[in-house]
Design a protein around this nucleic acid. Structure first.
Lengths: 190, 190
DNA sequence: AACGTAGTACTACAGTCGGAGTGGTGTCAA
DNA sequence: TTGACACCACTCCGACTGTAGTACTACGTT
């Protein structure tokens, strides 16, 4: 098991691209090697087996989908009212949609996790943490709404992103924009 | 190209199971043969190639996820108020969750459609029709809310089902029940 | 400065697996 | 008798895993 951390990260990032492009079943050592443009056989040295590869990707991908420090800091600025909330949600949807392959890869991992208990455990932990963090962040932010509104938004926006990324002709960009607004507005009404 | 319609349907239904169990890349002629317990080579006679197989499954799967006549008829009975609406949505979530493999297969197809334009066209058409039918049905039903609430519900409930089917430990059954209620209640508040 | 060593990169290969496609034969009904 | 379909067998092909072996590089030692 090789230990060069940069190389390992590069391989995992390559694996994310492969997942998005080829699907879960297409995530093979060879495909990762090719995507990362390293000699064939390299991935074999960094991951014990395919299961291990899936698990490591599952651990890493979530980090890349989360906002960075700067974005979080920026989100705390200004009046924290409903308009601001909508603004933040637009940013969120755009940020996640922009890392297209990351989100698609995460979907592939979700589906694959129905077949791989270890992966399921990793994803469950990460996502549960993320939801709780969202709720916690929301609680201290001064934004309107309760924890239920945060979860409902999480639900609606996730599927909106799925729709946008997998079947882009279902909703127009305009409709997506309006749906985000409506989702914020209505989820706040207890 | 063989033309026995029962056999073709049986093969497509088998393909749906394969999709759910093995993922999109696992959907091979041989796997379909095995799942349908027909002799190997049979699927080759019914589908020109894999692309054709995907497209035919994409056309059929949606029929199987839609409610049958009896369910639709029943949905029109009684007072069409908010309580009734919530009841219908619980039924919907349970019905779709119950056809577990169908929903997972549809997700696999969505992801696969990012790689297969023909499949994407079929799915886009079907799903657009379904959303419009939902809105139309909602409009004439006398249920409270506008078309936006119907779409928001569609979004939230879809992801709720994804969550339940792919990572069942994220939300408890109790939480899911409450989230459906909350989604109905809040989506109605314009 | 020369040498040795450890860790990593690269290459090659052997073995295995699974699937596509097709053609031939059997069977049944019109 | 003929046509359509079911069943079966076989060949060709491509891809992947896992590993063993070699080359390289950096660093520490003397």
């Amino acid at each position: 098991m090789r230990r060069n951390p940069e190389r390992r990260q590069a391989l995992i990032d390559a694996a994310i691209e492969v997942l998005a492009k080829e699907g879960a079943r297409g995530l093979t050592f060879r495909a990762v090697d090719a995507e990362a443009t390293v000699p064939p056989g390299t991935a074999s040295n960094y991951f014990a087996n395919r299961d291990d590869l899936f698990t490591q990707v599952g651990g890493r991908i979530y980090e890349r989908l989360l906002p960075d420090e700067a974005t979080i800091a920026r989100s705390r600025e200004g009046v924290q009212d409903q308009t601001r909330y909508a603004e933040l949600m637009h940013e969120l949807v755009d940020r996640v949609s922009a890392f297209n392959s990351g989100y698609l890869a995460l979907l592939e991992l979700r589906l694959e996790s129905t077949r791989r208990p270890e992966l399921r455990a990793v994803l469950t932990k990460r996502i549960r943490e993320d939801i709780d963090a969202n709720i916690g962040h929301h609680a201290v932010s001064g934004l309107p709404g309760d924890s239920t509104s945060a979860v409902l938004l999480y639900l609606a926006l996730n599927w909106l992103i799925v729709e946008r990324l997998t079947l882009p002709d279902i909703f127009t960009e305009q409709e997506i924009h309006e749906l985000v607004d409506a989702a914020v507005r209505r989820s706040l009404n207890a």
